[in-house]
Design a protein around this nucleic acid. Structure first.
Length: 458
RNA sequence: GGCCGGGUGGCAGAGUGGCUAUGCAGGGGACUGCAAAUCCCCGUACAUCGGUUCAAUUCCGGUCCCGGCCUCCA
């Protein structure tokens, strides 16, 4: 079965046929680096990481481009607020972003272009748009002329009349049409700016993605992804800029992840349900966060709850328990993705179904009778986990994870376990149970297995 | 108002025109000194009203709810 993706452009699932199967390209809108990544930012990172892993499995060469937006008015405002140079803010935030998403097992993209390193390409593109009659300069600004593109609105399915009728903002006097959007705007001396044919200024938001995707993936490329909220205006405007400048199709498949709610409510700072990835990493291991994120289909809204995170962690415990109990055998066939797993992912990234398969594979491993069967079952579970970006660490490491700051003394625990073993041998179960209870009170759970006693954090 | 998604068992969450996932929680059993983990068994759900059909949770239409987006928020 071929890969099928829901394409926002056509509003239906379509078989994915790359332009060039030996060079697949994917562009995903990355972060604006002015603050820590929040949990909502993490969803596209994880979703498109799964897609990237799948594409790499299906095609010999995949180029994944995810930009860093390091010029933006929110950045300017935050830097001013902090009293620090803009570059200090963007560099620090970029570093923290990398740390946070690495903890979620997201592979780095092949190319991670920064907007400020591509100003020349943006200016060139804007000049082309002016030359072709799709843009005009006015009062130091350059605006894209929406009426110059007859099928503007094809992605979000809006007509130009609706846009004008629904416009909520005050229309700037230099706009010829209320729907026109900014390609370039002037900068005062205290703001970042670059020399341009229209004076010193800075780019509008949308142009960077058009310029950078063209540079690294070509004018027409396979997949463009991002959050659902970007469909309009950001992606609509990218399409307008790129198609009008290049005179050829832009991205062929548009993939958008749904939004995230927290405990049934929209996430917002005022409701106090706003979490950063960092906050979450202090409560749960990255893999649990990742599994939780993948347990709802990417296209659906996801309700992020404490209970959901707890269940994801329990599920990971179950998988790692199966692996820990199969420690004695070497996995066989771990490079080969089980077919049902591949089928689930190829069907528009059905990760909830894929996770169900993970449970079945863990059950099969638990039930495996012979060492040969066990080795094969272990290989299958590991391969399936790898497709989702989980289960690749040492089970012992997983079970000994502790929240940041909460140190456990492993030496002491091992010593207490030995004391308990002695007590059990002497049939002093009162003492043995007291040791177990004391450890439990400290969040350490003991499990007596055939091969001895193991422990894990509650 | 416009555009888009939804309403599935106690909860989460896939899926399907007839064979009714998966996990958690709950009940029973095996194993265990007792537990834990693991294994086995058990709970027959698809908002509502019509229609199509031999057969609909799944297709079509109406109704009622819920959510998102509508100019810089992933």
């Amino acid at each position: 079965m071929p890969l099928v993706l829901y394409n926002t452009l056509t509003r239906q699932k379509e078989a994915f046929e790359p332009l060039n199967p030996s060079a697949v390209g994917m562009y995903v809108c990355g972060p604006t680096v002015y603050d820590r990544a929040h949990i909502g930012n993490a969803r596209p990172i994880i979703v498109f990481d799964v897609l990237y892993r799948l594409l790499k499995r299906l095609y010999p060469s995949v180029t994944y481009v995810r930009n860093i937006t390091d010029v933006d008015d929110k950045i300017n405002a935050r830097a001013k607020e902090n009293g620090e140079p803009i570059s200090a803010l963007t560099e620090r935030t970029t570093r923290m972003f990398h740390e946070d998403i690495a903890a979620l097992n997201a592979l780095p993209p092949d190319i991670e272009p920064r907007a400020t390193a591509h100003i020349a390409q943006m200016i060139a593109m804007i000049e082309t748009l002016i030359d072709k009659g799709h843009a005009y300069a006015a009062e130091g600004h350059v605006l894209f002329s929406v009426p110059s593109m007859p099928d503007y609105g094809c992605l979000s399915r809006r007509s130009q009349d609706e846009l004008v009728a629904g416009a909520r903002v005050e229309v700037a006097p230099y706009k010829k049409n209320p729907a026109d959007f900014v390609l370039w705007k002037p900068s005062s001396d205290d703001l970042p700016g670059w020399d341009s044919p229209w004076g010193r200024g800075r780019p509008g938001w949308h142009i960077e993605c058009s310029a950078m995707s063209a540079q690294y993936l070509g004018k027409t490329f396979d997949i463009h992804g991002g959050g659902q909220d970007l469909v309009f205006p950001h992606h609509e405007n990218e399409i307008a800029q790129s198609r009008c400048a290049h005179g050829q199709p832009f991205a062929r498949y548009w993939v958008h992840n749904g939004h995230l709610m927290v405990e049934g409510e929209k996430m917002s700072k005022s409701l106090g349900n706003f979490f950063t990835v960092r906050d979450l990493l202090e409560q749960a291991p990255g893999e649990a966060i990742r599994l939780c994120m993948l347990s709802t289909h990417y296209h659906q809204p996801l309700d992020w709850t404490n209970e959901g995170l707890k269940q994801a962690r329990q599920a990971m415990d179950r998988f790692y328990t199966a692996l820990r109990n199969a420690e004695d055998v070497e996995a066989v066939g771990r490079e080969e993705l089980p077919l049902e797993m591949l089928a689930a992912l190829e069907d528009d990234l059905n990760t909830p179904l894929a996770i169900a398969h993970l449970h079945e594979l863990a059950g099969a491993l638990n039930k495996a009778a012979s060492p040969e069967e066990k080795a094969r079952a272990k290989g299958r579970l590991l391969a399936a986990g790898d497709a989702l970006g989980v289960l690749q660490q040492d089970p012992e490491h997983w079970f000994k994870w502790s929240a940041a700051g909460g140190d456990v003394d492993e030496i002491e625990i091992e010593s207490l376990i030995r004391q308990r073993m002695e007590a059990r041998k002497a049939r002093d179960f009162a003492l043995a149970d007291r040791i177990r209870d004391d450890l439990a009170a400290r969040g350490i759970l003991l499990e007596d297995g055939a091969g001895g006693t193991t422990w894990k954090r509650a």
